[in-house]
């Protein structure tokens, strides 16, 4: 929901980044205010997943230029865990399997870490169990997933639900969903999208990184950005996604390329 008076949560300016010495991001600009849902679309290799990982602080990416201010803090001053505690959440495109770590143990550790950071009460295992089971209902997840190792042997859809469950527990200020729709059948997509919609409110913001328009039928964005070759080349309203779906990325006319998009007009 767009509200011109709401607070700026994320301000990205001229972001350049390398991975393994190759420049992937070549000047990304983006402003996200509270209450907004942004979709970043683009072909494979356009840099959108790289951008998502940089926001979360993945160590493999080297930022070479630019600034990111998150909620009045320089994001680059914060370690990944500090970003998480400050309210940045990345739902992974490929959630990591961690054999031997029970999902409930992991979820409770994460939840309590963030709670204590926020000066809120931590939960013991029994209290947490009740709490997390409630949250799992939102995603129509079986409690069996609590006793299994983190993501181990989960199907693609189950992994994605487990990501959104973490989002529900950590209540981030800025959630970045990296290709959360990939590998989901239509029922799972509906459940995941419904979960995300219930978690969005006027005080937080969501960035959806996606390939396809289909997720946007369920989570309706306020802005759609098109990324290409490491830059945002076009920004528009939700109708842009439909146009892309209908005409393909080539449809974006040459005039748009080379312009600076992403910054609010």
């Amino acid at each position: 929901m767009i509200n011109q008076n709401s607070k700026t949560l994320l301000e990205v300016r001229g972001l350049h980044a390398n991975v393994n010495g190759i420049e992937i991001l070549k000047g990304v600009d983006l402003t996200v205010k509270s209450g907004e849902v942004h979709a970043i679309m683009g072909l494979n290799g356009s840099g959108k997943s790289t951008f998502a990982k940089i926001l979360a602080g993945h160590p493999a990416y080297e930022v070479t230029a630019g600034t990111i201010i998150f909620n009045n803090q320089n994001l680059f001053d914060l370690e990944p865990e500090e970003r998480a505690r400050a309210g940045v959440f990345l739902a992974f495109q490929y959630p990591i399997e961690i054999p031997g770590v029970a999902n409930n143990q992991f979820l409770r550790l994460a939840y309590n870490t963030v709670q204590s950071q926020r000066g809120k009460e931590e939960l013991d295992p029994l209290e947490f169990d009740d709490f997390v089971r409630e949250k799992m209902k939102l995603l129509e997840m079986s409690p069996d997933f609590l006793d299994r190792s983190v993501n181990e042997g989960f199907s693609g859809g189950e992994k994605k639900r487990n990501e959104i469950l973490q989002m529900a527990l950590l209540e981030p200020i800025l959630a970045i969903l990296d290709e959360t729709d990939s590998g989901l059948d239509i029922d799972a997509l509906r459940i995941v999208a419904n979960g995300v919609n219930q978690l969005t409110n006027k005080d937080n913001a969501t960035i959806l990184v996606t390939h396809y328009q289909r997720l946007l039928d369920y989570i309706v964005p306020d802005y759609v950005h098109v990324m290409e070759a490491g830059r945002i080349i076009k920004t528009s309203g939700k109708e842009l996604a439909k146009e892309l779906e209908a005409h393909g990325y080539d449809w974006i006319n040459a005039d748009d390329r080379g312009k600076t998009a992403g910054v609010r007009p």
Partner: peptide, 18 residues
């Protein structure tokens, strides 16, 4: 794996120990 755990707020040490 370490990054995944840290991205959920766990400290580097806790992530490694876990």
């Amino acid at each position: 794996e370490i990054f995944y755990l840290k991205s959920r707020g766990l400290s580097d040490l806790t992530a490694r120990n876990l």
